[in-house]
Structure formats: C-alpha cells, structure tokens
Amino acid sequence: MNKTLTWTFGLLALLTLAALLVSNLAIEPSTKKPLMLLLFSSKFLLVAFQFMELKKAHVAWRAAIVAVLAVINGVIAVA
C-alpha cells in the first residue's frame, strides 16, 4: 500500500511537470486544450482511485466519478 501511494505520488509529480511543459509548447490551441484536459483528468482519476481509495468501492461509485469527469471535460471541450 505504501509503495502504491508513493508510485502514485511520483506519477502525479511527473504529470504536473508534463502539464507545465505542454502549456509552454507553441502548439495549436485546438491540440493543446484536449491534451491539457487529458493530463489533468489522469491526475484527477489517480487522486480519486488511489488516494481516496475509490478503487475499493462499489462499481457504481467508480462509474459515477468517471461519468462526472467526462461530462465536465466534454462541456469544456465542446464550448
């Protein structure tokens, strides 16, 4: 468990650095926007499933958090 949490934290740190790098890249906003949303969604799910231990919960809770995240990202991406 300790190891899993440490690996998760390391991965979150890498994703944070990756987001900072991507945000400074001179690429099209239409490419950058989904890329940033993807990076932050990965971090969101890592926190929810590993730190909050949602991975142990009933499938309905796991599906609900993924659905809420997908709807929020969908609305931001479509706008």
């Binding site: 300790n2 949490l5 998760t8 934290f9 979150l12 740190a13 944070t16 971090k43 590993q50 730190f51």
Partner: peptide
C-alpha cells in the same frame, strides 16, 4: 498534491 499524499499515508 503533496499534502494529499501525506493524508493518504
């Protein structure tokens, strides 16, 4: 995120 890691630990 670091603070969250300490809480999980």
């Amino acid at each position: 995120l670091t603070s969250g890691f300490f809480v999980a630990m």
